[in-house]
Write a protein that binds this DNA or RNA. Structure first.
Length: 338
DNA sequence: AATTGCCCCAACCGCCTGGTT
DNA sequence: AAACCAGGCGGTTGGGGCAAT
């Protein structure tokens, strides 16, 4: 049995709304509210429209304080950040941008932002390819020299933050500094952890991320800080053992990211790391539980900077439970057992 | 000036979820 | 427990506008 239609399809008007229809709908809702029943609304007003259509028109266009167009750089960053963390959950993303509708953000992403990022990504890739090329040549030269001198080819992997990092084999090198480099690189590729007590300045939050400094305990990657290998290497190692699929997950990014040039899994570039940002939390067990009711996702502000959230914005509040579910679904490969 | 192709966005469609009966 | 229903959501599309030729 198919679903009953929400309205009489043969007797409803479709297509663009006329100013008269807008006025009718707006004045009715302003005076009486929606009455909690969109389906019945058009009949009450005398509009030959589907209830869903009325709802959409109100939410996307007639509702007060709606902003159209003119997305700021900060809004771009918020959208990118959230998209990479939670995917195309437009209503939740819209919840972080008061005055913006999910439809607007969706359109903006599909028509402009994606292309903007794609352009930026191409530039980055070209620059990276150039760097990698010159390093490769340098390595070749050095290897030859070393071979000439010692007669032995150095078998140790060459880790460098400058180079894209393939999935590292933990403990494959005896050199702690090299291993440290590898872990650092991996973590950068995997994304970082927003510390609770350190709300970064969003205006510095850019894509792709860049290392700006490091200390013994933390790497600072723009606004992200990441635990260093000394603190985390054992956890990652055991996680790799327990969850062999962990890194495979990196190959199943949304198709959007593939389009953006992230379809070469070993050569991760930062954006996809942000997408998996909470994975690091999961693997370290710092803030994630597998129950789905974690504080980790309880505050969406931890995923996005600056905190543009309006406390009054209902969409945000409504979206959180679903966000949590979705987030934990995405993290199912990574979450360590309780 | 006319045509073509592309871009953008409003609106629709269909599925999913959660509440109610 | 199952069926029904409305609300909500994300993907997709059609058409208007605009730039290029």
């Amino acid at each position: 049995m198919g679903r009953a239609p929400c309205c009489d399809k043969t007797n409803v008007k479709k297509g663009p709304w006329s100013p008269e229809e807008d006025a009718k709908l707006k004045s009715y809702i302003e005076q009486h509210g929606t009455g909690g029943n969109w389906i019945a609304l058009p009949q009450k007003i005398g509009l030959k429209r589907c209830g869903k259509s009325c709802r959409l028109r109100w939410l996307n266009y007639l509702r007060p304080n709606i902003k159209h167009g003119g997305f700021s750089e900060e809004e771009d960053n918020v959208i990118c950040s959230l998209y990479l963390n939670i995917g195309s959950r437009w209503s939740i993303i819209a919840g972080q941008l008061p005055g913006r509708t999910d439809n607007d953000i969706k359109n903006y992403w599909n028509t402009r932002l994606k292309k903007k990022l794609l352009g930026r990504q191409r530039k980055e890739q070209q620059a990276q390819a150039r760097r990698a090329n010159s390093l490769k040549q340098e390595m070749k030269r050095e290897s030859c020299e070393a071979f000439m001198v010692s007669g032995v080819i150095n078998q140790s992997p060459y880790w460098s933050a400058e180079l894209p990092v393939a999935v590292p084999v933990m403990g494959s090198t005896q050199d702690p500094t090299m291993e440290d480099q590898a872990i650092r690189s991996l973590l950068i590729k995997l994304g970082g952890n927003f510390p609770d007590n350190q709300q970064p300045n969003t205006t510095n939050f850019q894509f792709p991320i860049d290392i700006i400094s490091s200390s013994q305990d933390q790497l600072y990657v723009n606004s992200l800080s990441i635990p260093t290998s000394a603190a985390i290497v054992n956890t990652i190692d055991s996680t790799c053992t327990q969850f062999p699929n962990m890194f495979q997950r990196l190959e199943s990014f949304p198709s959007e990211l593939c389009e953006l040039g992230y379809d070469n899994p070993p050569q991760l570039d930062g954006l996809e790391g942000l997408y998996e940002m909470e994975m690091v939390n999961a693997s370290t067990g710092t803030s994630t539980s597998t129950s789905g009711a974690s504080a980790c996702w309880g505050d969406i502000n931890s995923l996005v900077y600056p905190p543009l959230v309006s406390d009054h914005y209902e969409g945000c509040q409504q979206g959180l439970p679903q966000l949590q579910d979705s987030a934990f679904e995405n993290l199912r490969y990574f979450a360590p057992p309780q």
